[in-house]
């Protein structure tokens, strides 16, 4: 069957990599579409964005899909890489990162906090498939408590970054992130509007985007690879902020918007260096 690309796909994405090699029914494509749609609605060009990814499902499936320049960093380190890249790139270039939950909230959390602390201009899309799915399905740091995974066969009983009133976005807000939001993959245009705002923030933006994994997460937790079941399971546990129900795990919408309220890292560094070069002091 010939794949017919939409206008957005042919403008922004590489036909060699789209469709991706993601599992049947994977929800990552929804998140990916939301991000590219937001870029398109902002009227950005291929040349305006450097697209970075990491490893795991989210990294591998989105790497080299962007028609322009792209990189895939080592596991958890793209936030450090992007800080280095940020000071080397012109300020108008957008750095957009599509990473996984293990990458951002596990191995990369230290670097993520420092990226937020410095308010380096980048948009981090954390595609959360509720654990480490490309290695077969082990629990991660935002996996709902009680979930059965390959490494929590009795149910995930550890306290994590989304249990006991904890929220990983709290940590990032405390660290100085200037734009934070959460959406599930089925949020459609609502999520697109949020991503647009995140990209327009000249500073550190992060959107946490849980998406369904029928192959590994759903097969262990729900006992079914039928994608309808896991889509429904996630949707039932998501509600817009302010409309949360008892079983709501993911309150969706803009969580913290302090866009353009703090100096952007690279701009601030360059301005300061220029001042030192000219006058010898700050």
């Amino acid at each position: 069957m010939e794949y017919r690309s939409s206008v957005i796909t042919s403008k922004y994405l590489r036909s060699r990599k789209i469709p991706s090699t993601a599992c049947s029914g994977c929800g990552l494509g929804l998140n990916h579409k939301i991000v590219v749609q937001a870029i398109s609605e902002l009227g950005l060009d291929v040349a305006d964005v450097v697209w970075g990814t990491s490893i795991g499902c989210a990294g591998r499936q989105t790497f080299a899909t962007w028609k322009g320049d792209g990189f895939a960093g080592t596991h958890g380190r793209v936030y450090a890489i992007s800080r280095g890249l940020r000071v080397a790139l012109p300020p108008e270039k957008k750095i957009i990162l599509t990473v996984g939950d293990g990458d951002a909230f596990g191995i990369g959390l230290l670097h993520l906090i420092h990226a937020a602390r410095s308010n380096a201009d980048m948009t981090v899309i954390v595609n959360d498939n509720l654990g480490y799915q490309s290695t077969g399905g082990q629990y991660g740091w935002t996996t709902p408590q009680g979930s059965h995974t390959d490494s929590s066969p009795y149910g995930m009983f550890e306290h994590n970054l989304m249990s006991d009133e904890m929220d990983v976005l709290d940590i990032l807000k405390g660290a100085g992130a200037t734009f934070l939001a959460r959406h599930v993959a089925m949020d459609g245009q609502r999520a697109v509007e949020t991503v647009k705002k995140a990209i327009l923030n000249r500073g550190f933006s992060l959107i946490h985007m849980p998406y369904p994994c029928p192959t590994n997460f759903a097969s262990r937790e729900l006992g079914s690879r039928n994608q309808v079941n896991i889509y429904r399971w996630i949707q039932e546990r998501a509600a817009p902020l302010g409309e949360e129900k008892e079983n709501t795990v993911w309150a969706t919408g803009i969580w913290h918007d302090a866009s353009n309220s703090r100096p952007e890292f690279s701009e601030y560094v360059h301005e300061t260096v220029e001042k030192i070069r000219r006058t010898g002091s700050i």
Partner: peptide, 19 residues
């Protein structure tokens, strides 16, 4: 730039070099 650890330090350098 002072990094949060050496792993980040060299990654930042690679990032700057890629830029």
């Amino acid at each position: 730039l002072q990094a949060e650890d050496e792993c980040a330090a060299m990654h930042m350098c690679v990032g700057a070099a890629l830029g």
